[in-house]
Design a protein around this nucleic acid. Sequence first.
RNA 1: GCGCCUGUAGCUCAGGGGAUAGAGCAUCGGAUUCCGGUUCCGAGUGCCGGGGGUUCGAAUCCCUCCAGGCGCACCA
Length: 557
Amino acid sequence: MKTRVYQFVKAAALSLQDEMGVRFELPDIIIEHPKRREYGDFSTNLAMVAAPLFKTSPLEIAKGIIARKNNIPCGFIERFEIAGPGFINFFIERNCWYELLKEVYLKGADYGKSKMGRGAEVQVEFVSANPTGPLHVGHGRGAVVGDVLARILSFAGYSVSKEYYINDVGNQMNLLGSSVYARYMNVFGKDVVFPDNGYRGDYILDIAKEIAEKEGGRFASLPAEEALPFFIEYASGSILKGIELDLKDFGVTFDRWFSEKELFKGGKVEKTIDKMRSKGLIYEKDGALWFKTTLFGDDKDRVLKKADGSTTYFASDIAYHEDKLERGFERIIDVWGADHHGYKPRIEAFIKAHGEDGKKLDVVLVQLVSLLRGGEKVSMSTRAGEFVTLRDVIDEVGSDAARFFFLLRKSDAQLEFDLELAKKQTPENPVFYVQYAYARICSIFSVAEQRGIAVPSFDEADLALLSLDEEIELIKSITMYPEMIESCAAGLAPHHLVFYLQELVSLFHSYYNKNRVVSEQPEEMPLTLARLFMCGALKTVIKNALGVLGITAPEKM
RNA sequence: GCGCCUGUAGCUCAGGGGAUAGAGCAUCGGAUUCCGGUUCCGAGUGCCGGGGGUUCGAAUCCCUCCAGGCGCACCA
């Protein structure tokens, strides 16, 4: 509908240019939903923006554009209005809304899908937590943001690939291995110095015990260096499996798990460095190898290879991003914890150095989550290993509530997550409020069914009977869904969808309370059918939206 | 010191150049024989952190200051 208004305005503006004998590139035409109902269904500020270009007053332009209505088809617009300093407000013909409602019915589960992405290949990389311990709440937020973003993009017509990058190389792996090794030795009564910054969580001991059970004491007699590779391999593998399971239970899956180790095995890291060297972007200083990222907007050059000959994390990362580019993705979206924000310029620098548009990369930052329990802060300290895991949260509040809460704020704002609230079966709990609306509609349908009334198809219902203001508002809100998906996709902002759902559902609860859907009066059957039809469309939209969020739509609660 | 994010109602936060700045919760008052109890309606509250600028128009953009968070390794 918005598109139709847009097309009209554009055609009208062009035609107005001809009439006035002027020609210039039109400014972007913005069609918006006015905040106030009396300003119509849509409005545009074009007349004000274009006034200087047309060299006349906004009022004249607005009049001119509206005058085009005789030449340009716009039967769907009931009336126009010029308001305020020069807004043009559009009031849409009521029948058009009914038509849109039928579209919901016809498209069903596909309603809201868009071709916006034109099938462009997009990669979303997210979570990518080091396999050194279980996922904690913060990772959980990143997981949901990435996952829902991917779902939104694919709904919006992109071809999306979800990926988890595993940092299974480097110091932290050695540290993990030696931590488990130390615990293992303890099991056999041997005292080994626990590494300084070792991992102290209970899970380390669990893994050590598991190894002791399966492998016996055969490593106890080996020198540490010989035993270590096994411990690293075993521990990271076991932790990764746990991570995968936690994510799966959280409704998050990946198309690919990409191992950093594989980059080295294939010589990819060296190859990427060589490539940059051949472009003259590498130099040596203080025995280390540097990459001239400053040429591409970074604020200092970065080390790729340390004086001791080992490569940095950044070296792996550019190799990884080169791999992404080579796989032909048109867009690369990295979802990172906000503490990595400083990392963006150097990755972007690499992409530019590689000869690609830096805009190919989007970084979505996910801010901290602080847990509350009935308003009281739950303390989390990673250091002591007593942090709250994602698993704990899912077990306590369930996957649905956790997912919803993680999306309740824009991702780059800090989030307070109240565990007590998430469990409440009351309307102050937004998840409940939304799911309840769905269950309520299902309940209406079953009442109708008991009375032998089937939910009508679009040609059985006379939608013109839906004439109440609340009904029109509800229909408008229902049919705004496709637009919502597109705007979430464009802004990489999943939280908009959550806000939309809450507003939509609130309109329904309010409507429900005032009006009876299934009437007792036989003569009101046509109205009942029309209302059932509308509820059916609403049901579809709620279900589709919850589906995109990865949240279940329960028929009963 | 430099960079990024944040500062909006009592609380948690939307809105990120447009018209009278919104929602939920909390508070107070009212409705609800019902399809579903856990629902609904109404009311009040704002120097949009301060100051300057750009603009026909600024919560929104720019500068500056203040406050909070997070980054700023030859760590990962």
